[in-house]
């Protein structure tokens, strides 16, 4: 009887995976091994043991696809404060919306600052995903919830990281759809997260091991978890190079709820 219930639950879950009218997909709660965090030391009965680190996330919803140029144009029509000619230099840099006029409607909007991304999500009654939410959803491949140690999955990510962005950015939905129904979590663009600057990779990455070990720790992490985490490591290095007003050609966003 229990088995049957579970099966029914599974079918119900699966049926919710296609994006609704709002373009949101559901990501069910769970925990994910945080291969980018250094292992924790835990004392159990006077014995110190090293355990792997995990992150926990609650149920949340995420846009199936990154916000497109077309969607952002509509946003600018109603929110002229965010137009290039009107926006404050406090919230954007000189790259803001560079090339926007010539971008294809169905391409992800890029060269947007964190402030602008937040404003967009807010206008939709949404928010940016947290770093943990984003990593949790992005860890999923087409078939696995946690593909972070899957060689083929990693290879695909690293190929994108390793290649300079010399061509026009592809359209949203063109890379792959993961188990939650979210498209292009890797391989299309970098994406903003709400707390992008809470990790401690400084420009002086070799010094990072002296930071609070409970937080992200650069050199220590690389030493502890070797080759499998360096894709994540590169992602964190990228995020830590950002400022709230940074606008980058291959950095866009999607919203969460």
């Amino acid at each position: 009887m229990k088995k049957l219930e579970r099966l029914v639950l599974c079918i119900v879950l699966l049926s919710t995976l296609s994006a609704g009218a709002s373009g949101l997909v559901s990501v069910s709660k769970g925990r994910l091994e945080a291969i980018w965090l250094s292992p924790m030391s835990v004392k159990i009965k006077n014995q110190t043991k090293t355990t792997r680190s995990f992150i926990q996330v609650k149920d949340f919803k995420l846009m199936a696809k990154a916000v497109t140029v077309k969607q952002f144009k509509e946003f600018l029509e109603k929110n002229s404060d965010w137009r290039k000619d009107k926006v404050s230099g406090l919230f954007t840099d000189a790259n803001y919306l560079h090339g926007f006029e010539n971008a294809r409607d169905n391409s992800p909007v890029t060269n947007v600052s964190w402030f602008a991304a937040r404003a967009y999500c807010k206008s939709q009654g949404l928010r940016l995903p947290t770093l943990n939410e984003w990593e949790y959803a992005a860890a999923a491949s087409e078939t696995l919830r946690d593909a972070n140690k899957n060689e083929l999955f990693l290879k695909r990510i690293l190929e994108w990281y390793g290649e300079p962005q010399t061509e026009q950015i592809k359209e949203v939905g063109s890379i792959y759809k993961n188990l939650y129904g979210a498209y292009d979590m890797h391989g299309l663009i970098w994406e903003w997260v709400e707390d992008f600057n809470t990790t401690f990779v400084t420009g002086e990455s070799r010094e990072d091991s002296s930071f609070n070990k409970d937080m992200f720790c650069g050199a220590g992490s690389l030493a502890s978890n070797d080759k499998e985490n360096y894709a994540a490591f590169m992602r964190f290095a990228f995020r830590s190079s950002l400022k709230g007003k940074s606008s980058i050609w291959n950095l866009g966003f999607r919203c969460a709820q």
Binding site: N95, Y161, E163, T202, M234, A237, S241, L242, S246, N250
Partner: peptide, 27 residues
């Protein structure tokens, strides 16, 4: 795709300039 920086061994100062030169793409 990546942020980069530079550590010059000819520099006397924090990280040889590494932290001071940490630069995201297009910056």
């Amino acid at each position: 795709k990546m942020p980069h920086n530079i550590d010059l061994h000819a520099v006397t100062g924090q990280g040889g300039g590494a932290a001071a030169s940490f630069t995201s793409p297009g910056h």
